[in-house]
Design a protein around this nucleic acid. Sequence first.
DNA 1: TTCAAATATTTAAATGTTTCAATATATACA
DNA 2: TGTATATATTGAAACATTTAAATATTTGAA
Lengths: 92, 92
Amino acid sequence: MMDNKKIEKISRALSDASRIAILQQFKKKKDCLYCAEVNDLLDLTQPSISHHLKQLVDAELLLPQKEGRNLKYVLNHQVLDEYISSLNTLKD
Amino acid sequence: MMDNKKIEKISRALSDASRIAILQQFKKKKDCLYCAEVNDLLDLTQPSISHHLKQLVDAELLLPQKEGRNLKYVLNHQVLDEYISSLNTLKD
DNA sequence: TTCAAATATTTAAATGTTTCAATATATACA
DNA sequence: TGTATATATTGAAACATTTAAATATTTGAA
C-alpha cells in the first residue's frame, strides 16, 4: 500500500489545471504523448510545461522515455491504480 | 461527471499530510469525527486545524453537522466516489 | 564539427499556502 | 444573565508554487 507521503505527492501533482489537462490528453493520444504535443496543448511557455511534466514524472504518474532528441511519456497505470486503491481504503 | 476545477480542488485538499491524516481517522472512528477529536489527533493549533477542516469541507469531502456547541463531520462517500471515478477515466 | 531543434535548468517576480497569535462568535450551562 | 467551552476569523510571518525570461544541455542532421 502507498504511504501518506506518496499520496500527498500524487495529490499535489493532480492539483493543477494544466497537469490535469496533460493527463487527460492521454485519452486522445492512446498510450503515449510527446513533450512537443504538450507544448501545443497548453498556452504556457516551454519551461513552464517542462516544470509541470517534471512534477508528474516525480510523482511517477508519467514515465519518460527518451527517443533521440524527443521525449515521450507513458501513463503509469500501476501508480494511478495504487493511488485510487489508497483513496478507496478511506471509505472504510 | 466531475469537472476539472472540482478535480483540482479535491486533489489540492488531499495534498497535505494533516488533511490525509484527518480523512484516515474515519477508519477508526466509524462514520463520524468530532472537531475536538481532530484537535487531539494533530499537533497543530486550533486555528490551523479549523483551516484544514475548512478546506476538506470546501472540497465537499467532509460534510459538517452542527451539534450544539460541537461540530461533527461525516465523510462524503459520494464525492469521494465521483473523484475516484474521474481518476479512473484517465486510464482510457 | 557546426548548426538547429528539443528539452532542462536557473533566476526572479507574483501568487498561494501553512501556521500561529490574537480575537471574535456561537452556544451550553451555572 | 454571565461565564466557560467550542469553533471561526483576521493578520502576519514563513514557506512553497507557478510562471516567464534567459540560458544551458542534449542530440540529430548538414
